[in-house]
Each structure stands twice: as structure tokens, then as C-alpha cells.
Design a protein around this nucleic acid. Structure first.
Lengths: 331, 331
DNA sequence: TTGAAAGCGATACCAT
DNA sequence: ATGGTATCGCTTTCAA
């Protein structure tokens, strides 16, 4: 049997309602009393019972994160960040990797205050799944008008990268990425590339869309290998993901290419990982901390029942790095 | 405001204690009454309030899974499986990817019934972290005598694979895997290989320990590429992980090697994924369903306060596949 | 400033 | 077979 406020009250010689107030740092309790109570609570290893609290408050101070597509580890970093931020606002985070329906059911029973869904982006989610009164925030491409969505502007990210390379003199720019039409995320990125290439068309410019079989390191390696052994050499590569970039770099190393003197590289990732490349690669995308920050803010607003925008798009930025050189520095 | 048993009671014209019984399918309620109540509950979209229930029962029917090392997606499949099995026993599962200490703190406040920790296997966990009365089950290499552990016998798995290859005539058998001394899991596997190779030593046999830089597909690809282009060719390869195997197969395809006529392959994985190889690869390890099953059983026993073994080691098995051939079939 | 008491939603025991 | 009621741990009025 664990320690309750009554045990503390007995020890401290006060009523248990005083203990409750003291522990919640209420101004209605005198400082010395408060201190005494907090000390005893610590000694006894008191842990508040969330069940009891949420029963009376009708709030659990907990938000649920649904992440059904664990396969891609991309969001892991983001989720960790979100957890940290919410903790600063004294909210707990619960995670579920179940299907959305069953996850929502579980969360419902725990009287969760709000839910964040990490969109799957392949295949649709049935509207019927979202039978709940708990507010939901969706992270991913907007598919429903039912609840607010946060997403990042992938198309503009890649466009931005392409235009940057053009600005520093590149004309033969390749895009390495998943070119199948299954994943809307990947389609967006490709479109960003094409838009920039078509607008700033010159006689020398040509599209180099290099397809991969997936988004693994090895896919980037193979794509780069085949692209770079081709005679019509490119002067710059835009990579569709962090992992692809890692593969591309392995390929360039193997081929003895120097970055950025032989080849410029920009990597897409709003999913920066701690691991380091050999060179500090120039990246484009929305930084994780900003996404996390926005998600938390929105979440808290939703809980407070403030008005929030129904669709929030975060705009990317180009990070500094040393994997890009102006075309003049080359022959 | 959500629906409570009192609302149902009013609608049905019975007392709310009867509703409670009916909803829990108690034999103390007559069938027609029960049916009526259940029907009304459904119509009203009743969701039981876990907080209230666990408050009185001192049980939450929820188990917490701590998985701090999200980086490796290996356990994802296992966790999903465990979740499913527990659901069959009407237990919910909550997941945390936070550090163990903070995860335990959260779980504690939710009055969770038991915790499973997925061991990190790199670096130690501080004993002090485990300040909790909630029973803990540890999955990974045993480091503590404080709480029960479940693990798989990796060493014997690889030994088994090696001996099998020897039995069907192979002498030049390579092991491709992470050969650094950081990860105890990987060390175990290597030892299994060495044990078998040393015991069944012949004049022709020789160790082929091929190191990789990690456990990604590309690592397997590179290792296989360098091994197989060597003149002292091997007749069989044992792969240290599923992803390595995928890379090895890409390498053999590229080199035009036929499996199993040119080369036999056995892959270690207790982490079988749904994705298919080109060939049906022979695998060794403890099948995921068996691990999940054992973890759930043990968990439920712990909750029932039954006596359980302090250390459970699951023994591997060799799956059938068509990536191995006897050495006689080759020149 | 502190204490007493009501009540959150569900369960379980004791009466009918 | 059904109803009444105490109870779980805590927050929150309302009194003192």
C-alpha cells in the first residue's frame, strides 16, 4: 500500500486537506507548515495518485501520442522533444503504437486531455475512427477538416534548396529520392525540385531525377553510385532524406569525390539526428525544435479551449553547412 | 461531460450498482436486464472511467513498456505483438520512450500494474533508478539480481547455425556481424561462432570473422562485397542480423552468386520482419511470437504475485528455408 | 490560516 | 436478482 496524503497528514499533525493544499503550493497555507509537509512527503516517498486526482478534476494532465508507423524512426526524436517540452508544463505523455482506433480507445479510458496523431501518410485514415470528444491534433498532410493539422512545407523546402544551388551557379542539379507515387510526402518534395528547375530553366539545365528503392542508406548509396558513374556529370545533388544522404556520402567517398569542391550536396531533413556526417552537410527543412515547440503550444491552446488555426504549415529554412560551393570554383 | 453508469441507470430504470454488475457481466444480473443495460450503454457511447475503477480496485489493468532506445526498430515488432497478447487478457499497454527513471515516475502515478523494460545493452542502468514498488520485468541481458529477466540465447543460436552448416559439409564458414566489443549482444553471437568453429576444427577450416561498421543494410552489403571478392572464397555465411542479411543478399545478387548453389546463408534474427527476401532465407533465433508469449505469461504471473523464475533464457531454433545446400552439391 | 465535508465514477459488500 | 451504501485518494468549496 502506498503513501497517501492522509499518512502525511497524520505525521504532520494537520488535516489532509491542508496537505493537499500544501502539496499543490496553494497560497492558503502558511510557509512553515508548507515546508514541513513537503519535507515529510519526500521522506515518505509520496507519489500522488493520478487516478484520484483526475477523477475529481476531470483532467489527467496527460496527453496521448499516437504513432502507429513505428517503422520509420524519424519521428522518434520529435516525440522525445515533445515529451520534454510538455513535461516543462507539468504534462505527462503517453505513447501508443497501436492502430489509431484502439489507441484512441485506450487513451479515452485514461481521461487524456488531448491527442496528437502522427499521420501515416500512406493510405487514409477512416473518419469513423475518430469517435472521441478528446481534442485531436494531427501531424502530417491535411486530410480531414475535422481537426486541426500541423505540417511542414516539404515542397518549398526542396524548392528552396534547388534555388539556392541555382543562385550559386549550379545548373546540373540532381534530386535523389523516392519517386514512386505512393507517399504524398515524397511527391511533394519532387514537385519542389521540378518547380524550381522549370522556372529557372537555361539551355544547359536538365532534370536529373534519380529514383531510389526506398529511404535507407543503401538506397542512397546505390542511386548516387549509378548517377555519378554516368558521364553527364552533375555538379550538385539534393537528397530527399537524411538516410539517403548518408548513403550518398558513402558513395562519393568510395568514388574519391571531394565535397564540396567536386560536388555540392544539400540534404532534406527536418529529422536531424545526432550522428555526424564526415562533412557538415547543408540541410533544408523545418528544425525539429521548432516543430516540437509549435505542436506543444497548439496542444496547450486546444486544452485551454482557445481558438486555434485549423491548419498550420511550418516553413523550412536552409541551415548553414560546408557541403556547397559556388560553381565558379570548379572547372 | 461524459456518460457514467448513473446515466445508464436512469435510462434503464435500475440502480447504478446493477449497471456496474451488468457491464462486468456478473452472473448476479438476470439476462434480460443485462441485455437492456448493455444496449443502452452502447447507445449512449459509454466509456468506463479507468481512473474511478483503478481507484477502488487499486489496479489499472495496464502495463507499462519502457523502450528508451527507440533507435533500433528491432523491438517494435515485439512490442506490437506483446500489446496484442495483453489486449486479449484485457490489459492495456502504455509505452514510454523516455529515460527509465522518468518513465517509471510517470507510470507510477498512473498506478500501472507492471513494467517491462527493454534493456539498452550498451551502458549500465543505475540501480537507484528503479525506485518503485511496481514489479519490473527486464528484457535483455541480465545485469541485476533485483528483478526477473527474460533473454534469448544468442550465443547458442549462432553456434547452432554454425554447427548445422558444418554438419552439411561446410568448412569455410564466415560470420558477418558487429565485431566491436561495445555491445554485449554482439559479443555473444561472435562467441557462438567461435565455439563451434574451434570445437569442430579441421585442417581446412579457418575463421572468417568479417566486421561491419554497424547493423544497417549497407554494412552487410559492404562486408559481403569485400568478403566475396576475396580469392579465399567461403562456402557459407552466417549473418548477425536481419538487416545485414538484406545487404548481403544485395551484394550476392550484384556479384551474380546463386543462393544456395554458390553460397549458403543463415541469418540471425529473432526480429523477423514481414518484408520478404528474394530467397526464403534459413534463419536462427527465438521467434518473436514465442518471446512475446513468454513475456506476457511472466507479466501476468508477476501481477498475480505467483512465484516466477528470476532468470528466463529462451532457446533458439533453426527455421527451415532454402538458402542452404550441402557442400556435396558444389565443386 | 486551517479543518470539515461533499463529491468525482466505479466496485463490492450487505441488505433486501 | 436488485438496491443501498461505504470506499478508494484527492480536490475544492464552505465554515470555523
Amino acid at each position: 500500500m502506498s503513501v497517501t496524503i492522509k499518512d502525511i497528514a497524520k505525521q504532520a499533525g494537520v488535516s489532509y486537506s491542508t496537505v493537499s493544499k500544501a502539496l499543490r503550493d496553494s497560497p492558503l497555507v502558511k510557509s512553515p507548515t508548507k515546508k514541513k509537509i513537503i519535507k515529510i512527503a519526500e521522506e515518505l516517498g509520496y507519489q500522488p495518485n493520478i487516478a484520484a486526482r483526475s477523477l475529481v478534476q476531470k483532467k489527467s494532465y496527460t496527453i496521448g501520442v499516437i504513432w502507429p508507423s513505428v517503422k520509420r524512426m524519424a519521428p522518434a526524436v520529435l516525440i522525445t522533444k515533445i515529451t520534454d517540452l510538455l513535461e516543462e508544463h507539468s504534462y505527462s505523455t503517453l505513447l501508443s503504437i497501436n492502430k489509431i482506433d484502439s489507441a484512441i480507445a485506450t487513451f479515452n479510458r485514461f481521461q487524456i486531455d488531448a491527442i496528437v496523431v502522427f499521420g501515416d501518410n500512406r493510405g487514409t485514415i477512416h473518419h469513423s475512427s475518430f469517435k472521441t470528444k478528446v481534442p485531436i491534433l494531427y501531424y502530417g498532410i491535411k486530410e480531414h477538416t475535422l481537426f486541426p493539422t500541423i505540417d511542414v512545407n516539404r515542397r518549398f523546402a526542396i524548392k528552396m534548396a534547388t534555388e539556392y544551388l541555382q543562385r550559386i551557379g549550379h545548373q546540373r542539379i540532381a534530386y535523389i529520392g523516392d519517386l514512386t507515387d505512393e507517399d504524398p510526402l515524397q511527391i511533394e518534395k519532387r514537385l519542389g525540385y521540378l518547380e524550381a528547375m522549370n522556372v529557372n530553366q537555361t539551355e544547359n539545365s536538365k532534370h536529373f531525377l534519380v529514383p531510389t528503392n526506398g529511404l535507407d542508406i543503401h538506397d542512397g548509396y546505390q542511386a548516387a553510385k549509378s548517377l555519378l558513374s554516368d558521364k553527364q556529370s552533375v555538379t550538385a545533388i539534393i537528397s530527399g532524406s537524411y538516410d539517403l544522404t548518408r548513403g550518398i556520402l558513402r558513395a562519393t567517398t568510395e568514388l574519391g569525390l571531394k565535397i564540396p569542391s567536386d560536388l555540392s550536396i544539400i540534404s532534406y531533413d527536418n529529422i536531424t539526428l545526432t550522428e555526424e556526417f564526415d562533412v557538415q552537410v547543408t540541410r533544408v527543412g523545418v528544425p525539429i525544435p521548432r516543430i516540437a515547440q509549435k505542436i506543444c503550444e497548439t496542444l496547450l491552446s486546444i486544452i485551454e479551449e482557445d481558438e486555434i488555426e485549423n491548419s498550420i504549415i511550418l516553413e523550412p529554412e536552409l541551415s548553414s553547412g560546408d557541403s556547397c560551393a559556388t560553381i565558379k570554383s570548379r572547372t
